[in-house]
Write a protein that binds this DNA or RNA. Sequence first.
RNA 1: GGGGGUUUGCCCGAGUGGUUAAAGGGGGCGGACUGUAAAUCCGUUGGCUACGCCUACACAGGUUCAAAUCCUGUAGCCCCCA
Length: 432
Amino acid sequence: MPEQNLLEELTWRGLIHQCTDEDGLAKLLASAPQTVYIGFDPTADSLHVGSMMQLMMLRRFQTAGHRPIALVGGATGMIGDPSGKSEERNLLSAEQLQKNVDGVAAQMRRFLDFGDAGGEASSHAILLNNFEWMQGYSYLEFLRDVGKSFPVGAMMGKESVRSRLESESGLSYTEFSYMLLQAYDFVHLSREHGCLIQAGGSDQWGNITAGIDLGRRMLGKQLFGITAPLLTTSDGRKMGKTESGAIWLDPTRTSPYQFYQYWRNVDDADVMRCIAYLTEIERAEYEELNEATNSDPGRRTAQNRLAEWLTEFVHGQEGLANALRASKMLFGGEIGVQTDASLSEIFADVPSQEVSRDVLEGEGYWIVQALQDAKLANSGGEARRAVKEGGVYVNNIRASDEKQRLTSADLASETVMVIRKGKKNYALLRFV
RNA sequence: GGGGGUUUGCCCGAGUGGUUAAAGGGGGCGGACUGUAAAUCCGUUGGCUACGCCUACACAGGUUCAAAUCCUGUAGCCCCCA
């Protein structure tokens, strides 16, 4: 029997933005285990934090005893969803798409139980790719089956279409048709898998309701939709993006350390929402953390908890341990004598450059040159300036003399020197 | 096709024939403060083993002891007339 309080939980977490027929949905969820689906766009071979809300949403349903379907849009990804996009998208090649689908699928195992370990089968998650049922669907048939049930008037009314029509970039017929594909997915899943609920971000509302309408027309069945708010910062930007790009779940794209740091630096105004949306931290603790943030924001109790919870969830205990160790070292004091092995573990993310060991001999290795070799400065002038300004550190000890020469006495371990410019820009020099 | 204007450093924007590597602002980068924050304040922002040298104000020439500043041509942008 499914748990009764799923909707209650989603409500306190603020995860319900819009919902069709709330009472009906509540009854449905209470009556028997249901199947819920969310679509994922395979635009890259890794998910980023923008998808985490969706995955956690499915996970919450699964925990409550329902069956989640993660639908990877192999077919719809070939078209491109115009929702929330200001410009026509580039189409992905079939090979690239397959690669992306594979990568994304692997990451989902962190979030959802696909039944690999056995256990009760009714709530095992299913991974599907809509390419399976779309690839053989002929255009003529599709127009007769699906297109027939789509009033253009209603399509034109959708926000995603309207905003694009009004913009300069316009909207191609291909993207205009996207809605039909997603709507049909819902119908297909309800027919083949008994899926009556589609969830998604609030930007999916138009596509979801399109599917509900289509379900009524084609199957005479009532389907349900529920959307979550988008995870944005208090000033309205999407979360999960930094100047240097998205925060990925793939540790080779975004290391556990960077992942951890991202969450640790979340603004006070956003942190509680992140905890509610992205973690499974219980309500009682949530209230405590909220209280701690209000009374003593400087300690960032909530940020630390958020960062630790998510890092451990996504990267495991070991990933978290590494992130914590690196953080302690990078933001701590001096780097004492270390071994190469421990340094390279702690500074796994830090770019390193190799330099011939000979430079340390004789009169030594000029620090201005070292900064350039470490790629922390683009020119000698920039390097000199950085030293003069007191922003350069060797093994976390400030170096303020631009004439300084480095010798083997400055090595932090057998072959490595840690150079830093400013607060957070580290680089390793390996003398070989 | 004719006429006029404009073109400055990462961006915007001042600029007198000679202390102009170029005011001011933004952005970037450092530093202080702080909570690895925000706000604020300070410094810095062409290159060079460097109290000096080199390269720079669309591009190419010219006038001058001296040019971002004057002249000619070329290109980009803007406006007006046909």
